[in-house]
């Protein structure tokens, strides 16, 4: 586990330099937490970054970062991706930082890598989210998240695990979210996008269906809403 350097904030100083104007690149950040297996989907950042670069002109940093929830460094990354299989129990410090992060406008995307409503991750992380940000409610499939770039008429795209009957053997029709003033602050998925966006070799579906398009929508939504 390592925490990568944090871009421009780390290089702040009083120096004056001539620079050209530029748009700050988007940095994909994975949340690191003490309990559970936060790094269960190491391929996701690279594949999502690739899709952003492929489908949009949004400047994106080629490498993602890992941001510890116990560090205020997460405030540099207003979109955080959090996943895992194991029970989640945030430390007091992690809860405090994450609560502040959400209050200031950060967006936390949580994906259940188990695809199992009876799974430990699902049960514990939802409780943690409720404790930090309030109860999750179903996000309507007409939400702009599904239309802000690619259009997903039926809401969140289904995943291979849902269609193969793995996990809870359910196709989840909706995602859940915590909204504040109309904006998503926590987005919760039971669909196991972590597996889908990892392009596992045992799953060839990604060769015909690029489900990372939904990840592009998520990034576009986070950057514009």
């Amino acid at each position: 586990m390592s925490t990568m350097s944090h871009g421009t904030a780390a290089s702040h100083g009083a120096a004056v330099c001539a620079v050209g104007t530029h748009v700050e690149p988007f940095v994909f950040a994975t949340a690191q937490y003490e309990s559970g297996d936060w790094d269960s989907a190491p391929m996701v950042p690279a594949n999502v970054i690739d899709s952003i670069a492929r489908y949009t002109t949004i400047p994106v940093r080629p490498q993602g970062v890992v941001a510890s929830l116990s560090s205020e460094a997460i405030f540099q990354y207003p979109l955080l991706y959090l996943t895992g299989h194991l029970p989640v129990r945030f430390t007091t410090r992690e809860a405090e930082v994450l609560r502040t992060y959400l209050a200031r406008g950060g967006l936390l995307f949580v994906d259940d890598h188990n695809h199992d409503v009876d799974g430990a991750f699902h049960k514990t992380v939802r409780e943690e989210i409720r404790r930090l940000a309030g109860p999750l409610v179903p996000l309507p499939n007409s939400h702009e998240l599904y239309r802000c770039f690619f259009v997903f008429e039926n809401g969140p795209p289904t995943t291979s695990h849902e269609m193969n009957g793995w996990g809870d053997n359910l196709v989840h029709e909706q995602l859940d979210a915590v909204l504040r003033e109309g904006r998503i602050v926590v987005l919760y998925s039971n669909k196991d996008y972590s597996s889908e966006w990892s392009f596992h070799p045992d799953n060839k579906r990604f060769l015909s269906v690029d489900n990372t398009k939904f990840a592009v929508n998520l990034v576009v939504y986070a950057l514009t809403r």
Partner: peptide, 11 residues
């Protein structure tokens, strides 16, 4: 341009 500045100024 899309980015955190646009997002948070809008907010």
């Amino acid at each position: 341009a899309p980015g955190w500045e646009a997002k948070f100024v809008t907010a």
